[in-house]
Amino acid sequence: MRALAVGYEPILSSGHAACPGCIEALTVRHVAAALGTNTVAVVPPSCMAIIAGPQPFSSFKIPVYQPSLEASAAAATGLRRALDAQEKRDTLVAVFAGDGGTYDIGFQCLSSAAERNEDFIYFCFDNEGYMNTGAQKSSATPHFAKTGSTPAGKASKKKNLTEIMAAHGVPYVATACAGYLADLIRKGEKATRIRGTRIITLLVPCLDGWGLADDCGLEAARFAVESGVFPLYEVEEGCRYTLNEAGKTRPVRDYLSLQRRYRHATPEEIDALQAEVDAGWARLLERVAASRESGLTPSAK
């Protein structure tokens, strides 16, 4: 049995208002704990803001600043610099933002912060849509998925945030999900030991938005990884690629069949999605191989 050894102080508290079985809550529970108590969090409008609790009750044992939707990376910069100015350089600044707040409306300031290599960890809780507003599409919504604003299925592909951020040349970019909890925690902890802009995209299956049973979120996340839809990997300094889960062992169809948002997908669409995933996977493998060949072996974990 693949066992986990986790022993740390909890930072998320019970009593939060996430849906039963919410993977976002589960994920942030571990992410926050991996960061530790000397952390301040930035949470823009998103499901996370609901999880964070209604004033005056917070579900986080660390301070949380909730900025406007589009400004998380800028707000994190402000916090970082204010803390630095007060000689609190050991305090971590972490963003817990949604995909809408990251891929879309908050992308400009994230790109800028990454360019400046601002010293914070940015976690994108990617539930592939604007879920807090009732499940509309974002640029993280995958091809053919049905949302409130793409009732016939989304006509365009998902944006590849990880590659975009890697192309900024920041010290650390990674993907992770709660279905692979040990990997998630390892990456969270690893990120704390790096300085500069670190961006971790977390796949967060949304029970309601994707049409999953309450206890199926982790299974969906695992199927996403096993099918190559959401590869688990790391990119250091924009060039050193490491693949964390090597095998693409499952057809995309298995993954899609778990979710109501793909129920309408035609066999041709499923084939097209499979081809996109295959192509993406092949590209990723090339990058992994290239960084290995050029001697860019990943730094010690």
Binding site: S68, A74, A76, G78, R81
Partner: peptide, 14 residues
Amino acid sequence: PESEHSVMAASIAA
């Protein structure tokens, strides 16, 4: 930052 918007966002947080 890349814009006045982010200038103000950073200002508030700071």
